[in-house]
Design a protein around this nucleic acid. Structure first.
Length: 279
DNA sequence: ATCGCCTCCTGCGCGC
DNA sequence: TGCGCGCAGGAGGCGA
């Protein structure tokens, strides 16, 4: 389910419920996710106070004194705040119990992950957790100043991959998933199949702007559903975003009326307007 | 280094 | 209604 805006919406939704609270119990119902949930996780976390709730790319980072709980939602994961005695459903794999409440991970496809990185939290950023193998080589945050035209353009030279695959590569920039890749390429008028190394600097400037805009808008709209976050049915506002091309095959382009086309790039569906995105 | 393909798993919608 | 099929928002790992 989640792309970066959904993960950020989740982070903002859970933070006020768990920040500065003490973990009273850890429940693991299904250890076998993308990687096994570490056996000693419960003893690492019990009685620990939650010092911060952060995000790096699509990873959620829950920091305690001696380390960080790393959660990835995969394609179908969601987190909710519930009364601790709420009966668990079929795909409720993991709970962080905090007194009378719990933070519950549901993930039907089990592509998500719950991991642990030992080491003290250092500074206001994620600090030590960045040494984790999965986090060590990630690209910049798309909404940060370090993600700019020069960075993306320079990195793209001589790259043969399609520009869509390029911006979806988390070593290039984190958090641009399949939907927002199509959307940002549409907004910047770039055909998703173009080779990354052949796209001009002027177009990269528009692309960087589009990525920032699309993600920022989605986060803003996700915020509108935050009040429902702790309800049983509450979920981040994924569909609140107005998608201009994604899933619109055959329908008229909002700009020029040409039918939106679908193609497959790297085994993922990609949507574009053949007139607005010529190269 | 870079690239493309494969994989994990379940649910859902569609066509017959 | 029921069934089989294809597809789904991620992304690390592998072999070439």
């Amino acid at each position: 389910m989640p792309e970066l805006p959904e993960v950020e919406t989740t982070r903002r939704g859970i933070e006020p419920h768990i920040l500065d609270k003490t973990i009273t119990d850890v429940v693991v119902r299904e250890r076998k996710l993308r990687w096994p949930i570490p056996a000693k996780l419960a003893e690492r976390l019990k009685k620990q106070k939650i010092l911060s709730v952060e995000r790096r790319g699509k990873y959620l980072l829950i920091c305690v004194k001696d380390g960080t709980l790393i959660i990835h939602l995969g394609m179908s994961g969601s987190l909710r705040i519930l009364p601790a005695n709420t009966p668990a459903g079929a795909h409720d794999h993991f709970d962080l119990v905090i007194g009378k409440q719990c933070l519950r991970l549901r993930d039907p496809r089990k592509f998500g992950a719950v991991l642990w990185q030992a080491g003290p939290k250092s500074g206001s950023q994620s600090g030590y957790v960045e040494t984790h193998k999965l986090l060590a080589n990630l690209g910049p945050e798309p909404l940060s100043d370090s993600f700019d035209t020069d960075y993306l353009f320079n990195l793209s030279r001589k790259r043969q991959v399609s520009i869509k695959n390029f911006i979806m590569n988390s070593h290039v920039v984190v958090g641009v998933g399949n939907i927002y890749a199509s959307e940002s390429l549409f907004r910047s008028g770039i055909r998703p199949t173009s080779k990354a190394g052949k796209v001009s600097k002027a177009r990269y400037a528009r692309l960087v702007d589009s990525i920032k805009q699309v993600l920022a808008e989605a986060i803003e709209q996700g915020g509108t559903t935050l009040q429902d976050f702790s309800n049983e049915e509450g979920k981040p506002g994924y569909f609140a975003q107005e998608l201009k091309v994604y899933g619109r095959e055959g329908q008229a382009c909002y700009i020029c009326d040409a039918p939106i086309q679908k193609t497959v790039i790297g085994q993922r569906s990609s949507y574009y307007c053949p007139k607005c995105q010529k190269t």
